[in-house]
């Protein structure tokens, strides 16, 4: 066919773009499987390597994947907030920098963080206190959650008088391909400390995804944003009130997700297809003559709807 001839000549650049699109649209935890299929379809290692070297870092950061650091010093989250370099990510809790291999999704080595990579002692007090509180919450609420508190603005502020901003990231993934199901929960809480107003503004973004693929392909994609604020107090008091804001909103969001699911069978789904016909009995396939009769009559009487 003529149209195929035209399409057959894709430039390398177009192939890279297509490969990246597939990789970036991988469900939680499935990029390696997608990569394998993309590689075999492309049948061109050069194109594949280029696409994967561009797509993996983006995917890893947007999914906030968690990697184990080699020296048992814990986990590091790969996010855009702690990225020092393409493959270097700061773990402020252990004051280390993890060097990662994006495509293998592996942490190759760690090095101690340099002073200039870490926040000032003043900021660290707030960060550390919040980290401890959030960690306590995440341990309680998520069976497999990982969290980190990072400074994204004003990390060198060395005392009262200036604004600064922390971000709390929580990432929980559950991968069980043997049960045909994968999922992830990601939340990002931007915490802005406003010195002049003596307030702390909290903005949250939560994203939940799940993929079930036994004899089918069904995906959940849910997003939510919210805002709250509290008083600018001591590091410990701030940590307590911010973590309770996060706990409150996430618990509420989970309840609203549950409500969305509960509404499915009786309300939402009904607008697509009813369980039973409007007549509440199965369709009378054995007696469809009645329809042609009633239709003829209603046509004659002009009462057709």
């Amino acid at each position: 066919m003529a149209e195929e001839e035209e399409e057959a000549e894709l430039s390398e650049k177009q192939k890279v773009e297509i490969a990246k699109w597939f990789l970036l649209n991988s469900p939680p935890g499935e990029i390696q499987y997608v990569a394998k299929d993309v590689k075999s379809i492309l049948n061109d290692d050069g194109v594949y390597d280029e696409a994967s070297s561009e797509a993996f870092p983006l995917y890893n950061k947007s999914h906030m994947i968690c990697l184990q650091m080699p020296d048992r010093s814990g986990d590091v989250l790969v996010t855009s907030f702690n990225e020092l370099d393409v493959n270097a990510f700061l773990d402020p809790r252990s004051a280390q920098v993890a060097i990662v291999d994006h495509v293998k999704q592996d942490c190759i080595e760690v090095r101690p963080a340099k002073d200039e990579e870490l926040p000032s002692p003043y900021i660290e007090e707030f960060r550390c206190a919040l980290d401890a509180e959030v960690m306590r919450y995440v341990d309680e609420a998520y069976p497999k959650g990982v969290c980190s508190v990072l400074c994204v603005n004003g990390k060198d502020v060395d005392g009262p008088g200036s604004d600064f901003e922390l971000v709390v990231v929580i990432s929980a993934a559950r991968l069980s391909p043997q049960n045909f199901c994968n999922g992830s929960w990601r939340s990002v809480w931007n915490v802005g400390f406003k010195d002049d107003q003596q307030r702390v503004e909290v903005k949250g973004k939560i994203q939940v995804g799940a993929h079930y693929f036994e004899e089918g392909n069904v995906q959940l994609d849910a997003k939510h944003e919210c805002e709250d604020s509290t008083l600018f107090q001591s590091p410990e008091d701030c940590a307590l009130s911010i973590s309770s804001i996060i706990r409150h909103h996430e618990t509420e969001y989970l309840a609203s997700l549950e409500a969305s699911y509960l509404n499915l069978p009786d309300t939402t789904f009904k607008d697509l297809r009813r369980k039973l016909p409007v007549t509440r009995t199965l369709f009378p396939w054995h007696n469809t003559m009645q329809f042609s009769l009633t239709r003829d009559i209603s046509k004659e009487l002009g009462i057709e709807k």
């Binding site: 939560i206 079930y212 089918g216 392909n217 069904v218 995906q219 959940l220 994609d221 849910a222 997003k223 939510h224 944003e225 969001y253 609203s256 997700l257 409500a259 969305s260 499915l264």
Partner: peptide
């Protein structure tokens, strides 16, 4: 509750 989206085949 934000956006809640399910799709499947």
């Amino acid at each position: 509750s934000g956006t809640f989206s399910l799709s499947g085949s």
